[in-house]
């Protein structure tokens, strides 16, 4: 009995120390664990052409697709408060469109535009059939170009 409770105490104490250590390490490395920065924060982290990931929504109405003279696509990434102009020379993911969340890898140029070398689409955790999405759009409860849709279940109830 005593040996068992001693072993249990040892395990518990080790567990506490380990969780404390892990918590401290994670707090210390917090900045490096972030996958992307928002347009509001990019000024702090992306000086001197450092390569960073910029994440946010594609600002509605800001997309200029590449044409025959130049393949570059330009658009703005916004987080609601601030937005950053982005240029990108490459194939956009299927999910790319206005209002969609995306993450762009690249660097801030001196003129304030963000030159992206890779664009990843980010989708939210909302899943619903096409018909439901259409119904939501039709009833005006959700405008896709203005951001994420309302919760499906609430929308269905309402």
């Amino acid at each position: 009995m005593t040996r068992k409770s001693r072993r249990l105490t040892i395990v518990a104490v080790c567990g506490l120390c380990l969780s404390a250590a892990a918590g401290l390490v994670l707090t210390a490395f917090n900045d490096n664990l972030v996958f992307f920065v928002s347009p509001s924060d990019i000024g702090k982290t992306a000086g001197n052409g450092r390569t960073v990931r910029l994440g946010g929504l594609v600002e509605p109405g800001s997309v200029t697709r590449g044409d025959k003279t130049s393949a570059a696509t330009s658009f703005r990434i916004t987080d609601g408060a601030n937005s950053v102009p982005v240029t990108y020379n490459g194939i956009l993911p299927d999910l790319f469109r206005e209002g969609q969340g995306i993450v762009a890898l690249g660097a801030l140029r001196p003129d304030g535009t963000f030159q992206a070398s890779e664009v990843l689409a980010k989708h939210d955790e909302t899943y619903m059939p096409k018909e439901v999405a259409e119904a939501l759009k039709k009833s005006g409860q959700w405008k896709p170009e203005s951001g994420a849709p309302p919760p499906v279940n609430k929308a269905r109830g309402g």
Partner: peptide, 17 residues
């Protein structure tokens, strides 16, 4: 990159029934 994100994507986790 994995959903859900912390900014602007925050909605109640929702999947159609």
């Amino acid at each position: 990159l994995h959903q859900p994100a912390s900014i602007k994507f925050t909605e109640a986790p929702s999947i159609a029934p």
